[in-house]
Design a protein around this nucleic acid. Structure first.
Length: 428
RNA sequence: GCGGCUAUAGUGAAGUGGUUAUCACGCUAGUUUGUGGCACUGGAAUCAUGGGUUCAAUUCCCGUUAGCCGCCCCA
């Protein structure tokens, strides 16, 4: 008897049986939707060489600088630093390269489902171990893939029954045109740095794009007046974005262009987007986000290729399902319990059991000497819908009592065709 | 990583510097083997954890841990 009790480490939690229907509902809708669009599932390791993440996500990002879980090294792999994955894209790109997917028929459309880890301060909807669904489309540079990504995401959440969702989108240009914008942005900010927060002063040097993303009131004002990247895009990026928007319009996907939307990961180019509930103005709890990352494959040592993808935070989606009262379907469980009194009934009960289970009705029968009172209590506790009661009298006459446990009504029925009778009632 | 609030049965809540710490719902055992959800009788909390103040701490103070909120960041 130890008196020390344990609890889940900070930012992790048990997902208990009562919540599982929500998770299963999400998974089944997501997987059905995606496989209907010819996405294939891939499972990736939870650990990778930490370089995959550093080079992929960008060593200046918060994720790498302060949120990544590095594993303690063991003797055997002492020269390989391993890290718990903080997101899925970098690992997916590694898999694309390692498995020569560049020579598969393009585009390669993948999805994955699983836990990600970030050492952040937990809050509601923010956990250190959290579940993501991610998709990646490799090998196509046209806006069709951007559209397909956004549409699949929109479709999954729509089919789940979530309401009031909105896509925020923007284009952050390509390596050709972004430097021009950044120069323009820096010029604009140059004489305003004294008015900006410390963080923004750092951003000015390290990651100027993120100046637009500052949440400080004073900085927000400055950002609001700042030059808009869309005006500086090269014609290639401009057309790409334009074509994407036309597709979104055509399919009536609700979106807003947010010229200040930039994302926390370094690998994006051209299209970026997030999806959130419309009332979550500050987007503290984005349900998901993604974008195009045409240069990442090369950056991780692969051939020149193209890619677009996104990830959804399942924990947040489950929270929203609960808030919006989305009812997940519930599994059937036990439908019929057989209760029996006496030896004679015990022999009959087995035949009844066989008949019922052949009809693929979920039936439970454990012979016992318990009182009928106790047996009924147990049947109710097992959440069975019906009880089939067989006593001495019924056994002799080849009958049973069929009791509806929720309605407290019962009637005597012949054993013959009992199963199909029960099936009829269950299907009602 | 920084700041704020919180911590009492499974859940939600009361409450007190000093005998058996309340209440609701839930859970559980039974009310003597032909009828459950009602009723009745029982059971279950070292008042998160470690330390301090005190004759005495669940109550006051400090640390720790965890949750929530804000910042940061993101899913």
């Amino acid at each position: 008897m130890s008196n020390k009790s344990f609890q889940t480490p900070r930012g992790t939690r048990d997902i208990l049986p009562k919540d599982q229907p929500y998770w299963q509902h999400f998974r089944s809708i997501a997987e059905n939707t995606l496989s209907a669009l010819s996405f294939d599932r891939i499972d990736l390791p939870h650990i990778e060489n930490s370089e995959v993440f550093c080079r992929g996500i960008g060593s200046d990002t918060d994720i790498i600088q302060k949120e990544i879980y590095l594993l303690e090294q063991t003797k055997e792999d002492s020269d390989e630093k391993l890290a718990l994955r903080p997101e899925g894209t970098a690992g997916a790109v590694r898999a694309y390269i390692q498995n020569g997917m560049a020579s598969w028929p393009q585009p390669v459309k993948l999805y994955y489902l699983g836990a990600m880890f970030r050492h952040d301060r937990p809050q509601k909807g923010r956990y250190r171990e959290f579940q993501q669904l991610g998709i990646e489309i490799f090998g196509d540079q046209t806006p069709k893939s951007d559209y397909l990504a956004i549409m699949s995401c929109w479709e999954i959440l729509g089919r789940l029954g979530l309401k009031d969702l909105i896509i925020y989108t923007n284009s952050i240009g390509c390596p050709k045109c972004r430097p021009k914008y950044i120069a323009k942005l820096k010029k604009y900010y140059k004489d305003k740095l004294s008015l900006s927060c410390d963080n923004c002063n750092l951003r000015y040097h390290n990651n100027p794009l993120r100046l637009l993303d500052c949440k400080e009131e004073s900085c927000k004002k400055i950002a609001k007046e700042s030059p808009v990247i869309l005006d500086t895009l090269c014609s290639d990026c401009k057309n790409h974005f334009q074509e994407l928007l036309e597709l979104l319009d055509y399919f009536q996907i609700r979106y807003d262009i947010d010229p200040r939307l930039v994302r926390g990961l370094d690998y994006y180019s051209k299209t970026v987007f997030e999806i959130a509930e419309a009332s979550d103005i500050e987007r503290q709890n984005s349900l998901g986000g993604g974008g195009r990352y045409d240069d990442l494959i090369e950056k991780l040592g692969g051939p020149k290729s193209f890619a677009v993808g996104y990830s959804l935070g399942i924990d947040r989606i489950v929270n929203l399902m609960k808030e919006q009262k989305v009812q997940p379907p519930v599994k059937n469980g036990i439908e019929v319990c057989i209760l029996q009194l006496g030896e004679k009934a015990k022999n009959k009960a087995k035949k009844v059991y066989d008949q019922i289970s052949k009809e693929s009705i979920n039936v439970l029968f454990i012979p016992s000497h318990e009182s009928l009172r106790t047996q009924i209590k147990n049947a109710v506790k097992s959440k069975s819908k019906y009880a089939v009661i067989i006593g001495q009298a019924e056994a002799v006459k080849d009958e049973v009592i069929l009791r509806d446990l929720s309605a407290s009504a019962q009637e005597t029925l012949p054993v013959k065709n009992l199963a199909s009778e029960i099936r009829r009632r269950l299907d009602k």
